[in-house]
């Protein structure tokens, strides 16, 4: 007789919709680590769980919301930040986090990303950057490195990618961090910081997509991207933001860290100032 397989309850399970597991993600995908970091951050946040709301768009990363046992909203492609803006405005007590991918948030949804940053509205955006459209089969996105091979740039990407931390700084984000999914604890701490930060937080999580990106480029096996992150990540606290482009070249460094934080009047406070000016605000 075969011994029964005992599945222990994982400590993170209570924040997951365990009845929806197993998830749809590929072996070696980094998305599970992002979920894990986010749910640990929720545990540590001291904020009532029922006040945490997660919103995502479309794509592999967009499926994140569906696995979390929170009020979770799986919206349209590129629009989770706009949706989250409505949620937050209608109930400022909610701790609203957007988890979605580079294709969703920075490519089709780029307009909402920059405008939410400009407003300095108190949202937490976790952008899972795997340099590719994963779910649709590995096409190039706005973060695909120059020269990288994808299913729509078979000879190499001739478009220039976004440098997201630099873009976010220019747009007005007041908390900007980047980690790889290998830096699990740091990623979790940056998410916790995002919860505490009064204003727009942008946390970029670099994540392997062995299927869509890795095997067409220099990372044949799932573990290769992780090895690369392990060997070439460089921590910088105060980097030159213009130098943060990622080329995913095995010989290049990947700069990670808590890049930027400032206090700037957040959306609601700013609005209150002018409410009083108009004379209509009933506090």
């Amino acid at each position: 007789m075969k011994p029964p397989i005992t599945v222990e309850r994982h400590p993170r399970d209570k924040l997951l919709r365990v009845d929806r597991l197993p998830h749809i993600w590929c072996p070696g995908c980094g998305l599970g680590k992002v979920i894990s970091a986010y749910s640990k951050a929720i545990d540590n946040s001291g904020i009532e769980r029922n006040k945490h709301v997660v919103v995502s768009g479309i794509g592999c990363s967009g499926r994140a919301s569906g696995y979390l046992d929170l009020d979770s909203y799986h919206t349209t492609h590129g629009r989770p930040i706009a949706f989250a803006t409505g949620l937050k405005l209608a109930n400022p007590e909610l701790q609203v986090t957007v988890i979605s991918g580079d294709g969703d948030l920075s490519t089709i949804g780029g307009n909402h990303l920059i405008h939410a940053a400009r407003r300095n509205i108190n949202l937490n955006v976790i952008l899972v950057n795997n340099f590719i459209y994963g779910m649709t089969g590995g096409q190039a996105s706005a973060t695909t490195p120059y020269g990288a091979k994808t299913s729509t740039t078979t000879k190499g990407n001739y478009d220039h990618p976004f440098n997201l931390p630099f873009l976010m700084r220019a747009a007005g984000a007041t908390h900007i961090a980047r980690w790889t999914v290998l830096h699990h604890v740091q990623l979790q701490e940056s998410i916790e910081k995002a919860f505490q930060h009064d204003g727009f937080s942008f946390v970029e999580a670099l994540s392997p997509c062995p299927k869509g990106f890795g095997k067409k480029n220099s990372f044949r096996n799932a573990i290769d991207t992780m090895h690369y992150f392990e060997q070439r990540s460089e921590l910088e606290e105060n980097p030159e933001l213009t130098q943060l482009e990622i080329d995913m070249d095995p010989k290049s460094d990947v700069i990670v860290g808590e890049f930027f934080a400032e206090e700037k009047m957040p959306y609601f406070d700013s609005k209150d100032r002018f409410f009083h000016y108009i004379g209509g605000h009933q506090a």
Partner: peptide, 30 residues
């Protein structure tokens, strides 16, 4: 403002529509 509600000028109509659905999910008539 006077009635204790929220007005926001969004960046485009796609965002406007997404935002009112989000607000509706948070309980506001939108």
């Amino acid at each position: 403002f006077e009635e204790g509600g929220e007005f926001i000028q969004m960046e485009d109509e796609i965002a406007s529509m997404a935002a009112i659905i989000g607000a509706s999910c948070a309980g506001a008539k939108s």
